[in-house]
Amino acid sequence: MSIWEYANPVRFMRTSAVLLPWVTGLAVLALGAGLVWGFFFTPDDFRQGSTVKIIYVHVPSATMAINIWAMMLITSLIWVVRRHHVSVLAAKAAAPVGATMTAIALITGAVWGQPMWGTWWEWDPRLTAFLILFLFYLGYMALWAAIENPDTAADLTSILCLVGSVFAVISRYAINFWNQGLHQGASLSLDKEENVADVFWQPLVISLAGFFFLFLALLLVRTRTEIRARRLMALKARERLA
């Protein structure tokens, strides 16, 4: 059996029905544990005070915002190359979640920036790049919504996703060039010297896992909905033709 078997809608529906409760459970557990630990059982930062605790929402949502787009890029490519419907429907299902994650990252960033930088919004490269990413999500979703024929919509949104990804990367470099910014360096990196202190790090990783499983659960639910909608559409069409 190959992994492509899951690209069959029926198989996907069966497998996802089994997985969904587990993924949801993991999401609730990890998110609950990570956020409670992070908010209530970590010390205040010596410079940033308790404001630092927004990191447990800000960093995971920002990480998911980028990775969800990357996932959409991969699933769109799979659709273009192998024409698996589930793949492109997963991209469609992921987009609103990704847009919400981006919005959360932007809002928490503003809330964090106000006491730290003294301003709600700063045209800092990272913040600006996320704003642009948000616009890309909006465009992607708007294109899906505008096209009636689902296969045409799938093809065109996939092309937009591919081209948009290239431009998103170029924009990131252009924005860096345009303004050096105030934002601190990466919060999580393999280079230990750069990392946030261990006390903050452990709950952060758990929240990150929580956000990941939350996304996975939402993705499964939304993809199942999309598949059902497509089946309904196909059944109605068959009835009309009969």
């Binding site: 069959n8 809608p9 029926v10 196909a234």
Partner: peptide
Amino acid sequence: DAFLDGSF
């Protein structure tokens, strides 16, 4: 048609 095959 992938969406008409089989039963859900």
